[in-house]
């Protein structure tokens, strides 16, 4: 073993002469560290962390509020949109119904007019036809009388007329 004053004799850890010194300074150090930590450092860091946690919570709450407001606004917007759409639909329906009603009235009127005109036209056509038939009968009678007269046959006027009338009716019919 080395005997020099600067060399360790055995294990310095087992040199009991230095124990009081080490223990004394250890106690001093630990007490000082405890004071620094418990009086200054830990409350300060704790308050910083608490403050940050508070700020974060508050921010999250605020964000939550904003989100909710945005959702509400969106819901209101959608509701307004739906309402407007429903209103437009209703107005359109109403308009359509009105127009339909007007149209129905107009169509009915037009139908009636057309029917009236048709009836009138048919009546006039009938008249024309009748007068035409009469004219044909008169012409035929006259022509028959003339022809009979030309043949020199004195025929009974009434018989000729009846014959012609029967013929015209049958021919026309």
């Amino acid at each position: 073993m080395a005997a020099d004053a600067n060399d360790a004799v055995g294990m310095p850890q087992l040199d009991f002469a230095t124990f009081p010194n080490q223990i004394f300074w250890l106690v001093v150090t630990v007490v000082v560290i405890y004071m620094i930590l418990s009086r200054v450092a830990l409350p300060r860091i704790g308050s910083i962390l608490a403050e940050r946690a508070g700020t974060i919570t508050a921010d999250i709450d605020a964000a939550e509020t904003y989100k909710r407001q945005a959702a509400e606004a969106e819901a209101a917007y959608h509701k307004a949109l739906d309402d407007a759409r429903a209103e437009a639909h209703k107005v359109a329906e109403k308009m359509r119904a009105e127009i339909q009603a007007d149209l129905d009235v107009a169509i009915a009127k037009a139908d009636a007019e057309i029917a009236a005109r048709t009836a009138e036209s048919e009546r006039r056509i009938g008249e024309i036809r009748d007068s035409a038939n009469e004219a044909v009968e008169a012409v035929a009678r006259d022509a028959a009388h003339q022809i009979v007269a030309l043949f020199g046959v004195t025929a009974e006027e009434k018989a000729v007329t009846d014959a012609v009338s029967a013929r015209v009716k049958g021919g026309v019919a």
């Binding site: 010194n21 560290i33 200054v40 450092a41 300060r44």
Partner: peptide, 29 residues
Amino acid sequence: TVGIFTITNVTLWMAMTVLAVTLLMVVGA
């Protein structure tokens, strides 16, 4: 001689520990 209150290298390095703790926990924050 190493008496109970002698300033030794133990004292020095324990003081360094205190200094380091102070730097990290007090000055840092």
